[in-house]
Amino acid sequence: MSYSIASFSDRLASIYNKSEANAIVLQLMQHITEWSKARLLAEREITLTPSQSDAMEDGINRILKHEPIQYILGNVDFHGVTLKVDPRVLIPRPETEELVEWVLQDSNCGHCMILDCCTGSGCIAVALAQQLPNATLFACDISQDALNVAHENALLNNVKVNYFKADVLSPVFSEKVQPIDIIVSNPPYVLKQEKKNMQANVLDFEPHKALFVPEDDPLVFYRAIAQTATRKLTPKGKLFFEINANFGQEVVRILKLAGFNHVELKKDLYSNVRMVSAHR
Score class of each variant (00 low, 15 high):
residue 136 T to D: 06
residue 113 M to G: 08
residue 119 T to L: 04
residue 103 V to M: 07
residue 129 A to D: 02
residue 149 V to L: 06
residue 46 I to K: 02
residue 137 L to A: 01
residue 125 A to M: 07
residue 61 N to A: 15
residue 39 R to C: 05
residue 131 Q to G: 03
residue 110 G to N: 14
residue 146 A to Y: 02
residue 67 E to F: 12
residue 40 L to H: 08
residue 83 L to W: 03
residue 118 C to D: 04
residue 141 D to P: 00
residue 167 D to I: 12
residue 148 N to K: 09
residue 76 V to C: 08
residue 100 V to Q: 02
residue 53 S to L: 14
residue 117 C to F: 04
residue 72 I to M: 12
residue 42 A to D: 06
residue 51 S to R: 11
residue 63 I to S: 01
residue 42 A to H: 09
residue 145 D to L: 06
residue 51 S to P: 05
residue 151 H to R: 15
residue 42 A to C: 07
residue 62 R to C: 09
residue 122 G to M: 09
residue 117 C to L: 14
residue 58 D to V: 13
residue 50 P to W: 01
residue 50 P to I: 01
residue 77 D to A: 14
residue 109 C to S: 08
residue 141 D to Y: 01
residue 144 Q to T: 15
residue 134 N to P: 05
residue 34 E to R: 14
residue 98 E to Q: 15
residue 149 V to Q: 04
residue 104 L to E: 04
residue 95 E to L: 09
residue 63 I to Q: 01
residue 120 G to S: 08
residue 62 R to A: 11
residue 43 E to G: 00
residue 68 P to V: 08
residue 58 D to K: 15
residue 103 V to Y: 03
residue 143 S to D: 05
residue 109 C to F: 12
residue 114 I to H: 12
residue 119 T to G: 02
residue 133 P to L: 05
residue 146 A to K: 01
residue 85 V to Q: 05
residue 82 T to D: 08
residue 72 I to G: 13
residue 140 C to R: 06
residue 122 G to A: 11
residue 128 L to N: 05
residue 61 N to L: 13
residue 164 F to E: 01
residue 121 S to I: 06
residue 163 Y to L: 09
residue 140 C to I: 07
